[in-house]
Amino acid sequence: MTDQARRQGRDESDEERADRMWGDLIQEVRVAQTGVQILFGFLLTVVFQQKYADLSDTDHTIYVVTVVLGAAATGALIGPVSLHRLVSGRKVKPQAVRLASGLTQIGLFLLLATMASALVLILRVATDGSPVTWVVAGVVGWYLVCWYGLPLWSRRRHTAP
């Protein structure tokens, strides 16, 4: 394959490209959906634990914020499935892929916020509170590197002019 052919990518129509991109997106969403649904399920059980009553008002607030973020992330990451179902066969797949991609990005951001918030709550309960800020900042930094930094670096480095 020549360099020019490699730069041009695949020989596919707009519809074929949208089909391929939709398949890729749904595979990616499956991974994120599983994680957010498991986390959200665990969050829903916390309120029914005996220790919940002993939490401070601040920790109750952090918990409520975490549950709401988890619910929002779940909605955004399940959204592409509903979108596909409702527009299937309407000849709008390229637009649906763009919209579903946007929902997925929002869902991933909300998942990051949910995980950070859950980590704050867990560490506040499990420790005397002093390392919480630094540990959570480090973990969020790691998420940002893994979820955004490396992909953006790779896209910039490997995208042909």
Rank of each mutant, 00 (worst) to 15 (best):
M1A: 12
D3P: 06
D3F: 13
R7C: 04
Q8V: 01
Q8I: 00
Q8R: 11
G9Q: 07
R17M: 15
R17F: 10
R17G: 07
R20A: 05
R20N: 10
W22Q: 15
G23P: 04
D24L: 05
L25A: 04
I26E: 09
Q27V: 13
E28R: 12
V29E: 09
V31G: 08
A32L: 12
Q33G: 08
T34I: 14
G35D: 09
G35R: 11
G35T: 05
V36K: 07
V36R: 02
Q37S: 09
L39Q: 10
F40Q: 05
T45F: 14
V47Y: 08
Q50A: 11
K51Q: 02
Y52T: 04
Y52I: 05
L55D: 07
L55N: 04
S56V: 04
D59M: 14
H60F: 07
H60K: 10
I62Y: 04
Y63R: 01
Y63I: 06
Y63S: 05
V64W: 15
V64F: 13
V65C: 02
T66G: 13
L69G: 02
G70E: 00
T74I: 00
L77H: 13
I78M: 14
P80D: 01
P80K: 00
P80N: 06
S82E: 09
S82Y: 09
L83M: 09
L83K: 11
H84P: 00
H84Q: 01
R85H: 14
V87H: 04
S88K: 15
K93P: 06
P94V: 02
A96T: 07
V97H: 12
V97M: 11
R98G: 03
R98Y: 10
R98T: 10
L99V: 10
L99D: 00
L99F: 07
S101K: 03
T104W: 03
I106W: 08
I106Y: 06
G107M: 07
L108N: 10
F109K: 00
F109H: 02
L111Y: 15
L111G: 10
A113W: 06
A113D: 06
S117Q: 01
L123N: 11
L123R: 03
R124G: 06
A126I: 00
S130L: 09
V132R: 02
W134Y: 15
W134S: 04
W134R: 08
V135T: 02
V136F: 06
A137R: 15
V139A: 15
V140C: 08
G141I: 04
G141N: 06
V145A: 13
C146L: 15
C146S: 10
W147R: 10
W147D: 14
Y148R: 03
Y148H: 07
G149V: 09
P151W: 08
W153I: 11
R155V: 03
R155T: 08
R155N: 14
R157F: 06
T159V: 05
A160H: 15
A160K: 10
